[in-house]
């Protein structure tokens, strides 16, 4: 079997987005994933969502803070879609971004400020 090498320029560039959920209740990881994906699907459609490659990296239920990543090219679409979220688990909530970075280490520094 032939192995295909990928040039570094062809690799996906990720952007890591730090967020906090402002809500009265504490939503769990599943609810967060559901609300992010459904917002993206609703806002940019299925073809647009295929370009975003969103993935939840970590989420702290107690602090209601977390990090997810998306494709660099789709950052604006993802942020725009997240802005439209007004409910998580059928309760009013806001996704407030705390920072955007190319590495998790730098993002955590931004979030701690």
């Amino acid at each position: 079997m032939t192995k295909f090498k990928i040039k570094s320029s062809q690799k996906e560039n990720w952007r890591y987005i730090g967020f906090e959920v402002i809500s009265d209740n504490a939503p769990d990881e599943k609810e967060i994933i559901k609300s992010i994906t459904s917002a993206i699907l609703r806002f940019v459609g299925e073809v647009g969502a295929s370009e975003t490659n969103v993935w939840l990296i970590e989420y702290d239920e107690k602090r209601k803070r977390g990090i997810f990543r998306c494709s660099n090219r789709a950052l604006t679409k993802v942020l725009g879609a997240i802005t439209t979220i007004s409910n998580v688990a059928e309760k009013p909530a806001v996704f407030n971004t705390l920072g955007v970075s190319g590495t998790i280490k730098k993002l955590k520094l931004q979030m701690s400020k």
Binding site: I22, F43, L75, T76, K77, L79, G80, A81, I82, T83, T84, S86, P92, A93, V94, F95, N96, T97, V100
Partner: peptide, 18 residues
């Protein structure tokens, strides 16, 4: 209410989308 608030980066991103 607080649930209608958004931060600057998000508002700019949404505006760019539209």
């Amino acid at each position: 209410s607080i649930y209608d608030m958004r931060n600057q980066r998000q508002i700019i991103a949404l505006a760019e989308c539209i």
